[in-house]
């Protein structure tokens, strides 16, 4: 009987630490690039901000694919494929891999803003995301 309770707890704990690890790693790297603090509110604003794409004239934002409510499943705006919720509170796998976070920041910032996001912008967004 005891086992049943212990196992999920351990799973929960370890997945929580993995997320914290990856995010701590990211923040250490941002610090090395001169970022001294990060703002959840600025991150949230940037997440919801609309940018006009030069080529198509259409608005793009992080919410185009991930949605506004990060605890919900997102939907790729071009291919329709579903995207797992970004919020770590409902998706244990979210934000647990440094390589993956970096890869998608690069791709998605380029697509959405037409340029890469600065270390400060990434730190702000990540602070917002991790608390969802």
């Amino acid at each position: 009987m005891k086992k049943k309770i212990v196992v999920p707890l351990i799973l929960l704990l370890s997945s929580h630490t993995i997320m914290a690890d990856a995010i701590n790693d990211m923040f250490t790297q941002y610090q090395q690039q001169g970022v001294s603090n990060a703002s959840e509110q600025t991150g949230k604003t940037l997440w919801n901000k609309k940018f006009t794409d030069k080529k198509t004239g259409k608005d793009r934002s992080c919410t185009s694919c991930h949605g506004v409510d990060l605890t919900k499943v997102g939907k790729h705006v071009r291919t329709g494929k579903k995207i797992n919720p970004m919020a770590p509170s409902v998706n244990k796998k979210s934000l647990t891999d440094v390589k993956n976070i970096k890869k998608w920041f690069k791709r998605n910032c380029k697509w959405t803003l037409g340029r890469e996001c600065s270390a400060q912008e990434q730190a702000d967004i990540l602070t917002y995301l991790k608390n969802q």
Binding site: K55, R78, K99, K103, K106, R107, N108, K110, W111
Partner: peptide, 8 residues
């Protein structure tokens, strides 16, 4: 296809 799919 107008998307950024860069890989290492």
């Amino acid at each position: 296809f107008d998307e950024n799919a860069e890989l290492d």
